[in-house]
Design a protein around this nucleic acid. Sequence first.
DNA 1: TCTGGGGTCCTAGGACCC
DNA 2: TCTGGGGTCCTAGGACCC
Length: 413
Amino acid sequence: MERKILHVDANSAYLSWEAVYRLQHGAETDLRTIPSVVGGDEKSRRGIVLAKSIPAKKYNIKTGEALWSARGKCPNLVVLPPSYPLYMSCSDAMVRLLKRYSPNVERYSVDECFVDLTGYSQKKTAEEIAWEIKERCRTELGFTVNVGLSTNKLLAKMASELEKPDKMHTLYRHEIPEKFWPLPVRELFLSGPRTLPKLYKLNIFTIGQLAHASPDLLQHHLKSHGLTIWKYANGLDDSPVIPGERVIKGVGNSTTSPFDVDSEKEALLYLLSLTETAAMRLRSKKMLARVVTVSLRDTQLSFYSHQRRLISPTDSTLLLYSQAKSLFKQMCHKEPLRHLGVHLSDLVENKFYQTSFFDDTVVFRQQAIDKTIDEIRSSYGADALVRGSFPHSGIPPLCGGVYEAFPTMRSLL
DNA sequence: TCTGGGGTCCTAGGACCC
DNA sequence: TCTGGGGTCCTAGGACCC
């Protein structure tokens, strides 16, 4: 049976949500009507554009661009700091609205959802539902969305991007030659900045040209990725809409330091801080990690990473930190550091290991300490308990800190 | 006066085994 | 004497998404 899949995408999500919130709290100007962006804090070197208004887009301001560069393009640009809890509640409201049409709602990211309407649209057509969702987001939630409708996730997602904002479009198979193939190939999902030059070299500039290229040729030049985007260009995708919480593959934390980190002492404090939050998230998900990765970015913006596979998986902050520490020492970088990260992966549920593997009393004691620390922090706040090495170090004791706040994303559909 | 932070998946090459 | 070949696991790095 042909599926009916919707892709719902909040327009300029962070910025729209800020605008709606501020209007509801007495603001007179709608931020969506003036050149404005949501951006990170420049003083701590996080100064990039996270979301932009449509007027800001007209100044050629791009997401991810440095704020100083954006101000160069538009001197009276309004810059707002991000407020992530607000975005999460807006995202939740959107998901709740969508679940009134089908239980099969997949939160793809904080501002994008897929809905599988197959079997849930008896009274109205899928087109009518898509239109109604778009209207209700605007009238009931106060922000506009784009809705794409097709028979698979890829085409639904591409349909939602055909025209913005506040639009509903279909992209059914028979519409592919007319609506999809004339688009520049850079518009295609998974055609990123590294792939495009390779496609241009093969004289592929539109999605249609990619669709008609030889899959063998593409595979030869782009490996499996070539075949993936060839399928996408032909509108082929059979990935399912997966409702509910996704099984997490890894948890990581990384941070840009406000100052260049040029001493091992400071670097290790950062790694402890990052490990602490990553391990807390790991424990809150009742998982253990088998692989620890340390990543570094130096002031030249070069990126390095080292990882290590552990003999047995663990969720202990101090065990994970001792691995991070030894990985860091092994990396013996030279340049001052700008950015540090700790990532925990190859996760397993901790119920399998909890009782049988650890008969080591040191490990038991460590688990008890971690549990107590987690409980104190969840009852009295994250800063209720701080390791003694952090005060006056200039380094926050719990870096990252986005605990359960954000939904995870899938890099593939 | 310097481009965040959270993810997922893929690939090449080396180690090691039989 | 002059080193096969297939498979698996591990690691570092790359690419992409929002």
